[in-house]
Amino acid sequence: MKRIAGAVIAILIYSAIVFYFGWSVATWVELYLPINNWIFGIIWGLIAFGFIIGRVSHKLRVFSIVGSFWMIVMQYGLILFPIASILTWIFPAHLNLIGWIVFGIFIIIIIFGMYNAYTPVVRELSIVMPKKGSKLESIKVVVASDFHLGLLSNRAHLTRFVKKANAEKPDLVLLAGDLVDDDPIWFVQKGMSEVMKQLTSTYGIYGVLGNHEYYGKKIPLLVEEMEASNVRMLLDETILVADSFYLTGREDMTNKNRKQLSELAPEERGLPWFVMDHTPSNLLIPEKEAVDFHVSGHTHLGQMWPNHLFTRRIFELDYGYRRKGSLHAIVSSGFGFWGPPIRLGSQSELWSVNIKLEDGEV
Rank of each mutant, 00 (worst) to 15 (best):
K2V: 04
R3F: 15
I4N: 11
A5N: 07
A7D: 02
I17H: 01
V18G: 06
W23K: 09
A26C: 05
L31S: 11
W38P: 02
I42M: 10
I43M: 03
G50H: 03
G54M: 12
K59W: 04
F63Y: 07
S68C: 11
V73A: 15
M74Q: 00
Q75C: 12
F81G: 13
F81V: 15
I83P: 13
T88E: 14
T88M: 14
I90E: 11
P92Y: 03
A93I: 13
N96V: 11
I98D: 01
G99H: 00
G99F: 01
T119P: 11
V122F: 01
L125C: 10
M129V: 06
P130W: 00
S138I: 01
I139G: 08
V141R: 04
V142A: 08
V142P: 12
L151N: 03
L151K: 06
S153F: 09
S153W: 07
A156F: 13
R160E: 14
R160N: 14
R160C: 11
F161L: 15
F161S: 10
K163W: 01
A165Y: 02
N166Q: 04
A167Y: 06
D171S: 11
L172H: 00
V173T: 07
L174A: 05
L179F: 08
L179G: 02
D182H: 12
D183E: 02
P184E: 02
F187M: 07
Q189S: 12
K190S: 15
K190W: 14
E194W: 09
V195F: 08
M196C: 12
T200K: 13
Y203E: 10
I205W: 03
L209S: 01
H212A: 04
H212N: 07
E213H: 11
K218A: 01
I219F: 09
E224G: 04
N230C: 02
N230V: 01
V231P: 02
V231Y: 03
M233K: 05
L234Y: 05
D236W: 02
E237T: 08
T238F: 06
V241N: 06
A242P: 09
F245E: 04
F245S: 07
T248C: 12
T248S: 14
E251S: 14
M253W: 12
T254W: 12
N257R: 13
N257F: 10
K259A: 13
S262I: 10
A265Y: 01
P266A: 00
E267T: 10
E267I: 12
E267Y: 08
E268K: 14
W273A: 09
V275R: 02
D277N: 03
D277H: 01
L283R: 15
L283T: 15
L283G: 15
L284S: 09
E287P: 09
Q303W: 00
L309A: 14
F310S: 15
F310D: 15
F310Q: 15
F315A: 05
L317N: 07
Y321L: 02
G325S: 07
G325E: 05
L327W: 05
F337M: 05
F337C: 05
G339W: 10
G339N: 11
P341V: 03
I342V: 15
L344T: 02
S348R: 08
N354T: 01
N354I: 03
L357D: 07
G360D: 01
E361T: 13
